[in-house]
Design a protein around this nucleic acid. Structure first.
Lengths: 246, 246
DNA sequence: CGTATTTTTGAAGCGATTCAATGGACGTGG
DNA sequence: CCACGTCCATTGAATCGCTTCAAAAATACG
C-alpha cells in the first residue's frame, strides 16, 4: 500500500524493504526513522531446514523475515515438538529473548529458502533507546502472542482433535492464505507432522482427517499446499456447529 | 525481609505494603518512588468465588494481590475452562490488557477472601510515563508469561495426563508451597475440577491420580490442601524417569 | 530412474473420558 | 450442637477417540 513518493531535489532514498514496512515493531516510526533503522540490520540467507535460531542458545541476534517462511518449534527432552508459530515477511523472530537477555525458548527453522534482516542484541538495545516506540510495540507484540498462546492452551485442553485441526487450518488460512480461483490456498511446506505438532496430535490423525475433508470436498490436501474449498464447512467444524450439509 | 528503619527527624513514612514489595513490576523503584506509587492504588476486597475481572470486559483497572489467592481462568463458548494461573501476594492481574487497551482475555476469581490494590487505566498510564522502568518490567513479565504458556503448550501436546498433573503439582508447590513437618504443603482451595482445568483433563482422572499417589505415599491429598510427601517421586513422574521405588 | 521421504491406510490396543452412583465434608439453620 | 442439605470427591464399569505399529502407496529429489 505505501507507495514511494518521488521527492525532487532530495537525496536519493533507498527504498525500505517490505519486511520492515510489515513488521509490527516499526509501525510507529516515520519513513525517515524507519530508513535509519533499516541500516542497522544485516541481510542473512538460509536454506530449507536450516536453523536460524537454536533453542537454548543465548539470544544474541533476532530476525525480521523477508523472503520465505519460518517455523518456530519447541522440543522436549524426549524429542517431541510443538510448532508454536509460522512467520513470513514482516515476522519478527527472537526479539523478546533478545530484549530480556534470555536464551531462545524455541528454535526457528526455514521451511523453504529464506532471507532475513538480522540485528545484534547490542544494536537493538541502542535502537530501543533511540526509538522508545519500539519498546511499546514489543510489549504489544508480547501481549498478542500471550493471548494467542492462552487461547491455544484452552483449545488444547478442552477440544477434540478434529476441531483443533480445523481451527489451525482456518488460522493458517487467515495468516498465510492467498485467494485462488476455487478458494483460499495455504502454500507452505508444512508436513503432516508439522500440522500434528501444531495441534497436539499425531501425523496419522492429521492425514486421516485431511483426507476425509478432501473426500468431502471441504479442502484440497496436497503435499505443500492445502486449499480451503468450502470455508464455511471448515468453520462449522472449528466452532462445532451442526454440519449444514452443502 | 525489608525491616523498617527508624529515621529520626524525618517525616513519618507509611510502611509500603508487602504486596508492592513483592510485585515484579516495581522492583526497579527506589523506596521513595515506591511509596509514591502506592498512593495511586485503592484497596479492594472480594469474597470467595467473587469475580475481580470479567473476561470480555474492557480493561479499566488492574489488581495487585495483597491477601488471599486468585485464579485466572478462560472460558470457551461451551463453558469449558482452562485455569491459566494462580496468584497470591504480589501477583499482578490484568496489567497487560490495561496497558494494551484491550478487553480482559480471562476472568480472575477469588479462591478465598481476597484483598487487592487496584489502579485505573488512566492512573497507570500516568505511572508508566513517570516511571519508565515499570514498562520495561511489564515487558519482562509478558515475556515470562509467554514462555510459561509455550512450555505448557508443549506439555499439553506431547505428554500424558499423569505427567502433566505431576508437573502441575510440582509447579504449584514451588510457587505456593509452604514447608511443613513432613513435606511441602500447597494450601489453596483448588478443587479437583480446578486441577483438571490446569492440566487439560477431567476431574475424575485428577481424583483417581491423586488418590493413587496418596495410597503410594507420594502425596497427602486433602480437600483444600495437598502435601507433597516425597518430592523426588513426584519429579520422577513429571520427568518420566524410572520409578526408583522408595 | 532409482532411492529416500512423506503420506495413506488398516487393524489392534489403550489411555482417558463419560455416565452413574456412592461416600464424605462443609456450612447453615434449627 | 446436632441435623440436614449441598457441594465436592471417589469409585466402578462401559465406551470411545486417538494412538500405535506395520506396511503399502505416492511423491519428491538427486
Amino acid at each position: 500500500m505505501p507507495g514511494k513518493q518521488t521527492m525532487p531535489a532530495e537525496p536519493i532514498v533507498l527504498p525500505i524493504p517490505d519486511a520492515f514496512l510489515q513488521a509490527d515493531l516499526f509501525t510507529d516510526l516515520s519513513p525517515d526513522e524507519l530508513a535509519s533503522v533499516c541500516t542497522r540490520f544485516k541481510r542473512a540467507q538460509f536454506q530449507t531446514n536450516e536453523t536460524l535460531l537454536l533453542e537454548g542458545d543465548q539470544a544474541r541476534v533476532f530476525h525480521v523475515v523477508d523472503e520465505g517462511k519460518v517455523k518456530v518449534v519447541q522440543t522436549s527432552a524426549e524429542g517431541m515438538e510443538v510448532l508454536l508459530h509460522v512467520f513470513e515477511r514482516g515476522g519478527v523472530i527472537g526479539a523478546l529473548p533478545v530484549a530480556g537477555r534470555n536464551a531462545y525458548p524455541a528454535s526457528a527453522i526455514a521451511l523453504e529458502p529464506v532471507t532475513t534482516y538480522l540485528i545484534s542484541a547490542e544494536a537493538f538495545e541502542q535502537l530501543m533507546v533511540e526509538y522508545p516506540s519500539i519498546g511499546r510495540r514489543l510489549l504489544h507484540f508480547a501481549t498478542a502472542m500471550l493471548q494467542s498462546a492462552h487461547r491455544r492452551l484452552r483449545e488444547m485442553g478442552t477440544e477434540r482433535v478434529e476441531r483443533r485441526i480445523a481451527r489451525t487450518l482456518a488460522r493458517l488460512a487467515s495468516q498465510l492464505g492467498r485467494p485462488v480461483a476455487d478458494g483460499v490456498s495455504i502454500e507452505a511446506a508444512l508436513s503432516r507432522q508439522d500440522l500434528a505438532d501444531m495441534t497436539g496430535t499425531t501425523l496419522y490423525t492429521v492425514s486421516r482427517t485431511l483426507k476425509a475433508w478432501d473426500r468431502a470436498g471441504i479442502v484440497r490436501a496436497e503435499r505443500k499446499r492445502i486449499t480451503i474449498l468450502q470455508p464455511h464447512r471448515l468453520i462449522s467444524i472449528a466452532e462445532d456447529l451442526p454440519p449444514e450439509d452443502g
